[in-house]
């Protein structure tokens, strides 16, 4: 299950999307996600589908890899579809079984909602798939820098995020080790009710936390020994610098948003395939 989640994973490839500045990718992804809620017409859907498809193509990430990321949300998707299908009021009744009615409004709402959800996931996972976690934190740090003025410790937050990312695989390995050690001592982690299984996690979590704290302590010392003293007076090995392609990406995304808003406003709402 955990392996299926592609959100937050990085897919190394040599593409124009990979090379974009992380700030551009973050801002454009935000704009895209907002744009998904700016229209209610078939033309709008067509437009954002094409936009997304073009970017996926440019990113050179296999389509299969992206759809794999949708697996964990299938349940959520189903629930959304069912709710919208049966509980949207108004419209002409298409099918009715006892109290359950399917109306054309309901069908439309559920298809639209489902598509939106899928695009939301694909759009945001596209960002993380094409950006290394470090570049992502750098981007977030630089975008949030204005918050420094109201005393938000932006640099520290970004540093914490990148260290957390570095330690995820180490702690996973450690969890595995502790689990094996406890199984070797006769711990039963598989059988029993949910509550029993949750209880059996305690002998794994306690040593894991102890070791995580010890690691944190060591790491803090190592950082201090290498003269770390917060964000002030620090230079960057890889400073973020906008290039031409980054400006082009901004312009394209903004043009896309404007067209989408215009489509949403002037193309009649009630175009429907059925």
């Amino acid at each position: 299950m955990i392996r299926d989640i592609t959100i937050g994973q990085y897919y190394p490839a040599d593409s124009i999307v990979h090379k974009l500045d992380p700030r551009v990718k973050i801002v454009c992804t935000m704009l895209y996600l907002i744009s998904l809620f700016m229209f209610r017409s078939v033309a709008g859907y067509a437009l954002c589908t094409v936009f997304l498809a073009v970017i996926i193509r440019l990113s050179k990430i296999p389509f299969k890899f992206i759809t794999k990321g949708l697996k964990p949300i299938i349940l959520l998707l189903m629930i959304t579809l069912v709710f919208n299908l049966f509980f949207t009021s108004g419209g002409n009744v298409l099918v009715s079984v006892r109290i359950l009615k399917i109306t054309d409004e309901g069908l439309r709402a559920s298809v639209y909602m489902g598509l939106r959800l899928v695009y939301l996931i694909v759009g945001s996972s596209l960002m993380t798939l094409t950006t290394t976690p470090n570049a992502l934190t750098d981007g977030i740090e630089s975008l949030l820098r204005p918050l420094n003025k109201i005393k938000v410790p932006v640099h520290e937050i970004a540093m914490m995020m990148s260290i957390a990312l570095r330690f995820i695989p180490i702690l996973l390995e450690e969890t595995d080790k502790i689990m094996k050690a406890q199984i070797a001592r006769g711990a039963d982690l598989e059988s029993g009710s949910i509550i029993e299984r949750a209880k059996s996690m305690i002998p794994i979590l306690v040593p894991l936390f102890v070791s995580a704290f010890r690691r944190a302590n060591d790491l803090a010392m190592a950082m201090e020994a290498r003269c770390y003293r917060g964000g002030d007076g620090r230079t960057k090995m890889k400073p973020l610098v906008y290039k031409r392609r980054d400006y082009v990406a901004y312009v394209i995304t903004i043009v896309y948003c404007i067209i989408l808003v215009l489509v949403g406003r002037y193309v009649p709402f009630k175009i429907w395939i059925f």
Binding site: R166, I170, L219, R234, T235, M237, K238
Partner: peptide, 26 residues
């Protein structure tokens, strides 16, 4: 402990960590 003193997620970024803290130009 080699794991607990490497800060960067890429080798070269980790080596750059010290000089970054010292304010060395890029």
């Amino acid at each position: 402990n080699p794991d607990n003193q490497i800060i960067g997620t890429v080798v070269e970024e980790d080596v750059g960590f010290g000089p970054e803290n010292l304010g060395v130009p890029t």
